[in-house]
């Protein structure tokens, strides 16, 4: 028996890798198989439409479509196998991993898209970075409530400015890497 955790020890034991063991639901696997099957067949179709360069090679053995066509066929076959196996599997209800929060996921993905997909390249790099880091920290720390919020926002702004300055200087001046 393990001793009871003392106040200074960790109570939380959830691991970011733990949930990788639970299988996804039957429906998710079936949809995946369908998507993969369509992908595989599309790749085969596109490969067949590629030129064969028969005049240059004489044999047609260097045709660009051979290799991707082969991958497409394998993917399609594996997708069918996955579907068959999923259908035979006794229905398992996809377990919801405790503590996973899709709202937070959407917020993180949205901010990442806004920053890397839109702001970078349109604003000066340091400004885009400072804005993104500030928005990210502020957004995720907002739900902690009004107590101490001004302080957290000031800290977020400081971290944002320091990150932008440090990364710009470190990469451009010290390591001679060009930034967007």
């Amino acid at each position: 028996m393990s001793p009871a955790p003392s106040s200074e020890e960790v109570v939380e034991t959830a691991s970011p890798f733990e949930d990788e063991k639970a299988p996804p639901s039957v429906r998710a696997d079936l949809v995946t198989s369908a998507v993969l099957l369509v992908l595989g067949l599309t790749v085969v179709a596109l490969s067949l439409r590629m030129p064969t360069f028969l005049e240059q090679s004489g044999t047609g053995l260097t045709a660009p479509g051979i290799v991707p066509g082969f991958y497409g066929v394998v993917l399609a076959v594996l997708a069918v196998l996955l579907a068959l196996r999923t259908l035979r599997r006794t229905a398992v209800v996809g377990e919801k991993v405790a503590g996973n929060d899709n709202g937070r996921l959407a917020m993180a993905a949205g901010l990442a898209l806004l920053y890397a997909g839109f702001l970078v390249g349109r604003l000066p790099f340091w400004m885009a970075t400072a804005l993104f880091v500030f928005a990210f920290i502020a957004a995720f720390e907002w739900p902690r409530g009004p107590a101490g919020r001004p302080r957290r926002l000031i800290e977020a702004a400081a971290i944002a400015l320091c990150t932008a300055a440090a990364i710009t200087l470190l990469f451009e001046e010290l390591f001679l890497v060009r930034l967007p």
Binding site: A108, L111, A112, L113, Y115, A116, G117, V120, G121, T129, F132, V133, F136, I137, F140, E141, A156, I159, T163, I167, F171, V177, R178, L179, P180
Partner: peptide, 30 residues
């Protein structure tokens, strides 16, 4: 993590861009 992860994402963006200096690579990364 709220304070660490945005910095990691900025580093990812820089890392993806720096090799060939194409914004296309940043989209590929995303």
């Amino acid at each position: 993590r709220e304070r660490l992860m945005p910095i990691v994402l900025v580093l990812c963006t820089v890392g993806a861009f720096a090799i060939t200096q194409r914004l296309f690579d940043v989209w590929v990364m995303l």
